[in-house]
Design a protein around this nucleic acid. Structure first.
Length: 546
DNA sequence: ACTCAAGGCCAT
DNA sequence: ATGGCCTTGAGT
């Protein structure tokens, strides 16, 4: 007879599903518990430097039965789920252990702990599980998700700094964290801070053998070939739609992280409590998190613009903003937004979420129409804030360089892009990014920021359905607070809004002065600036008409 | 001696 | 090209 203890102490891999295709897991492979086939696929792809191209929309579904159909999307998913190209050996040496060994060990311990918590407690069947019976398995299982988050933000060794592009000012000066912050750490947010983590669990003690390949020289060198296999973001360059060459993209690096790793170790608890885990994975915000557009898109956009646009910094920044605005509108307006909720479209998605919160809610056709009309106002009020958040998040994650090279070899600071060309505020922005990094700004927080921005109070230009907007915002805040939000985040959020406002003002002045005439009538950016300029709205802009 | 994630092999 | 099984070898 198999007792509960056996299950708890020896969690079988049989019950684990590959986060990429849902097949049976055979062990840790390249940083992730995956099946044997995805392991082989990933290895072949990286070893042979294969370049795939999706013949559809680059968002093909990947599961056991169709994983062979689109290798491009399969590989994207491998990366998105957290498989590490660094773990594929360039020298093809067999056997032995690599530097991820300690991660695997710790992750196993965490899994054990989590499964023990689950078995030993009566966990009520929360809304998320009952609402999404099809989403319980594979990539979105709590264990797998936490593993991905955990792994993705592991500190990189100085010689493996493929995605550590942070200049000194982003690094925590010492090991101090406030009581409030440590609370966040205990709740699981600060474990996303690479520095906190490295202090709690040094990943690369000198006794662990380094992989035979060396990255240090490449990453100390100012010119990096982003088309090489170095990180998730870099790999995006292999896709024809976003080809980048060493001449076009530059990243500034240093080895400052090595010294900060010797900071005093803090008693940070990396394991969220049972309540936290539960809230995290079942809350509304967690559902919203699944609806975010892909993280690598900002890198793709900037890379694309760096190739195509005339090498003029403001033009460069504004072209990126234009691209991001297009994505934002598409995301907010149609299927991309809340598509995972299988309701199709913003309105239904919102109603769906709100109804889940309060089943008594009833929506009339008028209410829907009012929200539709409000989308315009919401987007106009939030796009610049969201743009800053969108650029900042991948930078914090280390998936964006601190500067990009234009075709004439001139550097454009990533902050300049985030600030829409308003260079006066770049230093303030860098400060904010630094603080967010210290607070362990996670994808979850990014999601909250994005939705808070979109559903922010509208001031004098009230949304027609203000109560509904308020309600969404309230739910986001509540859901966020339950898990890992600190007041500091709200302060910073408001600072970002103020930066966005300043940038918009800056652009409006340029617009009025006629500096932006290069943009034609189809420019979303100009439309935003026009409507920002006029105090009275004159009908719905074309991009919102369905 | 054992473990287990690397790479390799080869039938499909 | 895929994926199941085999071999290898540093770390424990």
């Amino acid at each position: 007879m198999v007792g509960v203890e056996t299950v708890v102490l020896k969690p079988s891999l049989d019950s684990e599903l590959c986060p990429v295709c849902g097949d049976r897991v055979s062990g840790y492979h390249y940083g992730l518990l995956t099946c044997e086939s995805c392991k082989g696929f990933f290895k072949r792809t990286v070893q042979n430097k294969k370049q795939y191209q999706c013949s559809a929309e680059a968002d093909c579904h990947v599961d056991k039965s169709c994983r062979k159909r689109c290798p491009s999307c399969r590989f994207q998913k491998c990366i998105a789920m957290g498989m590490k190209m660094e773990a594929v050996r360039t020298d093809r040496q067999r056997g032995g252990r690599n530097k991820f060994g300690s991660f695997y060990k710790r992750d196993r311990a965490h899994r054990l702990q989590r499964s023990a918590m689950r078995v030993n407690s009566i966990v009520p069947n929360h809304a998320a599980t009952s609402f999404y019976p099809d989403h319980q398995v594979s990539s979105s299982t709590p264990d797998q998700s936490s593993q991905i988050q955990y792994f993705d933000t592991q500190p990189k060794s100085p010689t493996l700094s493929s995605s550590t592009h942070h200049p000194n000012f982003f690094l925590r000066p010492n090991g101090y964290i406030s009581e409030q912050d440590s609370l966040a750490a205990l709740l699981g947010s600060s474990i996303d801070d690479p520095l906190l983590r490295s202090q709690a669990f040094p990943m690369y003690p000198s006794t662990i053998k380094q992989e035979p390949f060396e990255y240090s020289e490449q990453f100390l060198h100012p010119h990096i070939d982003y088309s090489a296999f170095h990180s998730t973001a870099n790999y995006a360059a292999m896709i024809p739609t976003a080809q980048v060459t060493s001449a076009q993209v530059t990243s500034t690096t240093n080895s400052g992280s090595a010294s900060s790793r010797s900071s005093p170790v803090l008693p940070v608890c990396p394991v969220p409590t049972e309540k936290t885990v539960d809230l995290f994975y079942n809350s509304t915000l967690a559902e919203m998190c699944k609806c975010l557009p892909d993280d690598a898109r900002i890198f793709r956009m900037i890379s694309k613009v760096s190739k195509t646009v005339k090498p003029e910094p403001l033009r460069f920044a504004l072209d990126v903003a234009e691209e991001n605005l297009k994505e934002l509108v598409a995301w907010a307006k149609t299927d991309h937004f809340f598509s995972k909720l299988e309701t199709g479209g913003t309105i239904k998605g919102l109603q769906f979420i709100l109804k889940r919160m309060d089943p008594k809610l009833h929506f009339t056709e008028n209410a829907s129409a009012a929200i539709m009309d409000d989308q315009m106002n919401l987007l106009q009020a939030s796009w610049a804030t969201i743009h800053i958040i969108d650029v900042s998040f991948p930078l914090i994650k280390g998936e964006l360089p601190v500067s990009f090279k234009m075709s004439n070899n001139v550097d454009v600071n990533t902050g300049f892009i985030a600030m829409l060309g308003h260079s006066n505020n770049v230093a303030r922005w860098a400060d904010i990014v630094n603080r967010l990094r210290q607070l362990g700004f996670s994808r979850y927080d990014y999601c909250a920021f994005r939705f808070l921005a979109l559903f922010h109070e509208q001031g004098e230009r009230l949304a027609k359905n203000q109560p509904l907007v308020n309600s969404v915002r309230h739910q986001v805040i509540q859901s966020w607070r339950e898990v890992q939000c600190t007041n500091t985040f709200f302060e910073i959020f408001e600072q970002i809004r103020s930066l966005a406002s300043a940038s918009q003002e800056f652009l409006c002045e340029r617009y009025r002065a006629g500096d932006l005439e290069i943009y034609n009538s189809t420019s979303l950016l100009c439309e935003m600036l026009r409507t920002h300029h006029h105090t009275v709205t004159y009908g719905a802009p074309t991009y919102l008409v369905r």
